[in-house]
C-alpha cells in the first residue's frame, strides 16, 4: 500500500510538471492524465532492462558520434558512462535505458558543453 501511494505521488508530480495541469487548476484533465499514466506504469508489458543491451546501445552511439566527426560528443558521453559505472548506482541500467528511449536524434541536436 505504501508503495502504491508513493507511485501515485510521483505520478502526480510528473503529470503536473509535463502537462501543466494540477488538482488545483484543471482537476478533470489532471485526473484523466493521472489515471492513464498510472495504468501504463503499473500494468506495462515490457520486458526487463537488459544491461548488456543498454551498454551496447551506448557504445554504438559513441561510435556513431565518432564516425560523424563528433569526437567531443563521443568523449563526453564515454566519460559520463564510465563515471556512472564507477558510482555503482543500483538502477543505472534502467535509468540509462529510459534516456535511450527518450533520446531524440542526438547526433543532430546534442552539443558537447565547453
Amino acid at each position: 500500500m505504501a508503495h502504491l501511494a508513493r507511485l501515485g505521488a510521483l505520478t502526480d508530480e510528473l503529470v503536473t510538471l509535463l502537462t501543466g495541469t494540477s488538482t488545483k487548476t484543471e482537476r478533470a484533465k489532471f485526473n484523466t492524465h493521472r489515471e492513464s499514466a498510472l495504468r501504463a506504469l503499473r500494468y506495462s508489458n515490457y520486458s526487463r532492462t537488459n544491461q548488456f543491451d543498454v551498454t551496447a546501445r551506448l557504445e554504438g552511439l559513441e561510435e556513431k558520434f565518432r564516425i560523424y566527426n563528433e569526437d567531443p560528443l563521443a568523449d563526453a558521453l564515454g566519460e559520463r558512462v564510465e563515471k556512472v559505472s564507477k558510482l555503482q548506482t543500483k538502477w543505472a541500467p534502467e535509468i540509462l535505458h529510459l534516456f535511450l528511449e527518450l533520446s531524440d536524434r542526438p547526433l543532430v541536436n546534442s552539443k558537447a558543453e565547453e
Binding site: S44, Y46, A76, L98, L102, S103, S110
Partner: peptide, 25 residues
C-alpha cells in the same frame, strides 16, 4: 548528451519512479 529532453526536476522524478520498480520503457 542523448537529447532526452528532461529537465533536472522531471529527471529526478523519473529516477524515483524507476527506483520504485517502474519499467523504463
Amino acid at each position: 548528451l542523448l537529447n532526452a529532453d528532461l529537465d533536472r526536476q522531471t529527471m529526478s522524478i523519473c529516477i524515483s519512479l524507476i527506483e520504485n520498480g517502474v519499467n523504463p520503457e
